[in-house]
Structure formats: structure tokens, C-alpha cells
């Protein structure tokens, strides 16, 4: 038994369990906390895949900022357990869940059937050092993807302005 098998199945079980809990839980605050656990565990899966910088960013951006924001907003609303948290209609629900399951099965089948079609690189090369792989990432980001990167900056600016415009209070707390 290899350690990586144990690690992968352990992490995968945690991820799937808490992802299910996000969808099933009645209380949205618990949902958000479960999602936070899922994100942190996913960061450790990225560590397994040797994407160190992405793992760190996942911890900072998703677990540390986005989910904290979600939890904070929900606690501000002080949401209680919801009465009708799920959509109604037995037939419609059957179709919804069934279609999701069908999609899942389709993807699985395609993964199985496409075995060997993608030329895989040898992943047993000496372990990629975090620093150099991050450097490669940065160089790529500022050369090949520079326009996309600038566009992202623009998008973030627009989003910041938009969020302030949407949520501003008449009168406001500041002059």
C-alpha cells in the first residue's frame, strides 16, 4: 500500500462528504463552513499534485477571503434554519438529480474510455521545487498571458466599482 493512495482516498472522502453536506445542510451558515472545509482540503490535494503556489493561493483567496466573506454576510443576516430550502416538485427534482447523476456517469465513462489517449508526461521526475515552478508561472503570466492578466485587473476594478454602487446606502456613514 502506497502512502499516496491512502492520502488521496482520505482527502477525496473528506472533500466529497463535505461537498455533499454543503448541498444537503438546511442551515446556510453550516453550508458555508462545510464549503470552507472543502476548500482547505482541496488546497491539500493541490499540494499532492505539486501545484504549491496554487495551493497557497487557494488557501488565501478561497478559504481566507471569499468564504470568510460568505460566512460574514450570512452571520450578519443571522439566517436560521430554512423551511423550504429545496425546490418543490417530485418529478422536477427527479429530473434535476437524475440529470446531474447522468452527467457524472457520462464524465466517468469518458474518463475510463479515453484511457491512454492523452500522452502523459513522466511525473516521477525529481520533485519540482516550489520556487522554480512559481517563477515559471510568473514568467508565463507576464509574457504569454499579459493581456488576459491586464483584462483581469480591469475586471476587478469594474467589480469593485460595481459592488460599491450596488450596496451603497443613501446618506451613508461617511460624507
Amino acid at each position: 500500500m502506497d502512502v499516496s493512495i491512502l492520502l488521496f482516498y482520505g482527502l477525496a472522502t473528506i472533500i466529497v462528504f463535505f461537498a455533499l453536506a454543503v448541498v444537503i445542510s438546511d442551515n446556510p451558515i453550516y453550508s458555508a463552513l462545510y464549503l470552507a472545509i472543502t476548500m482547505v482540503t482541496l488546497a491539500f490535494v493541490y499540494f499532492l499534485l505539486k501545484a504549491f503556489f496554487i495551493a497557497g493561493v487557494q488557501l488565501i483567496v478561497y478559504a481566507g477571503a471569499v468564504m470568510v466573506l460568505f460566512v460574514m454576510v450570512m452571520m450578519m443576516f443571522d439566517l436560521k434554519k430554512e423551511k423550504n430550502s429545496f425546490s418543490k416538485g417530485k418529478f422536477a427534482n427527479f429530473i434535476k438529480v437524475g440529470s446531474a447523476g447522468w452527467l457524472c456517469g457520462l464524465i466517468f465513462a469518458s474518463i475510463m474510455l479515453s484511457k491512454g489517449m492523452l500522452p502523459l508526461a513522466n511525473t516521477n521526475t525529481p520533485q519540482a521545487v516550489a520556487d522554480t515552478s512559481t517563477k515559471e508561472l510568473a514568467i508565463l503570466l507576464y509574457t504569454d498571458y499579459i493581456f488576459a492578466f491586464e483584462l483581469l485587473g480591469l475586471l476587478l476594478l469594474l467589480i469593485a466599482v460595481g459592488a460599491v454602487a450596488v450596496s451603497r446606502i443613501k446618506g451613508g456613514t461617511h460624507e
Partner: peptide, 26 residues
């Protein structure tokens, strides 16, 4: 395959959530 399978399961769980939940935040 295993990682892709995990990704597929996660995606479909998310899809069920989008289709069935009624809370905007969820």
C-alpha cells in the same frame, strides 16, 4: 483518472446544489 473522477463528482454535487437549492447564497 482518480483526480478527474473526484473533479467530476464535485462538479455534479455543485450542479445538484445549483438546481435544487432556493437560497441565493447557497
Amino acid at each position: 483518472n482518480h483526480y478527474l473522477g473526484l473533479s467530476a463528482i464535485l462538479f455534479c454535487i455543485g450542479m445538484v446544489g445549483v438546481l435544487r437549492r432556493r437560497n441565493v447564497l447557497v
